[in-house]
Amino acid sequence: MKKRVGLLLSVILIFALIITGCGNQGAAPTESEDTGDNGVEKSSDFNAQMTFNGSSTLAPVMSAIATDFIEEYETWNNVNPDFPEENIAIYVSAGGSGAGVKAALEETSDFGMLAREIKDEEKEKLGENMKDFTLGIDALTISVNPENPLHEIKDDLSSEEIKKIFSGEYKYWDEVDESLEHKEIVVVIRDLGGGAHGVFQNSIMGDTQVREDAIQSPSMGALVTKIIENKDAIGYASFGMVNQNEGKLIPLKVDGVEPTKENIVDGSYKISRPLIVVKKGDLTPEQQAFMDVVTSEKGAEIIEEMGFVPAN
């Protein structure tokens, strides 16, 4: 008898799992479509959760702002008395700019984060109703190891020289400057299809290809680590990462322009990329409330703290 009850229970449990599993999946998209189409808040539609997915450069910034937001308000009714008293939950995950667009497109998350311009075909797919927020600018600095004497001899590389180094035309450091040692140049890049490389390719390389045996780092952190660890390495470390690791790697001038905040904002420093958050369709009031904070001065402060240049 006992056995039978146990069996029955397990059967019920399994089916319950299956049914709830399917049920959630079925319900979620319709819900978001509703809010997307109407744009009108109904108390039953209120969603205390918000999800961000995308660029690994932007993810730490968003989660810092989100943590700050949650700590300050805790429940939604503190943000706006019209909202119900529910705990604020904001989830940020990183998967690359491409994944960010994909998540926004398929509505697997509310917002997508990009560390590059939105491509035209992506804009098309996201539809006319898409909303985008440019939060800040990140610049890619051409950085070398502090032990590399290059930065003492000449702290300025022309676009042409950078092109030659990254394309493999210069194979050894003494080809860049005669006083340097005859050592192979170790070029570190991000993956060729990624956002950061796209920016670099556009602003420096043009149609020239990067040398095939360049090390492709899986993340910006790994790229910076490689430059810090290897004396002969050169790579495009992001401005934010250089600020976080001050002194461990040296950014060089490009065409005589130093990568400083002023130069990045006024556009004279050429290797830079925008940090964008996109959403398919209109924002719900609670999402609007959060994005207002992100684009406020306080958000800008956090963006700056993380080493990026805020857009406003």
Binding site: S56, G95, G96, S97, G98, A99, V101, K102, L105, E106, K119, E121, E122, D191, L192, G193, G194, G195, E212, D213, I215, Q216, P218
Partner: peptide, 25 residues
């Protein structure tokens, strides 16, 4: 690039892991 013992190379799983996040859907 073509693999050699002391040279860099690429494997299929790492190729996918490296580029999938960035590839446009």
């Amino acid at each position: 690039i073509m693999p050699a013992l002391f040279k860099k190379c690429q494997t299929i799983p790492s190729l996918i892991a490296l580029e999938m996040g960035m590839a446009e859907v």
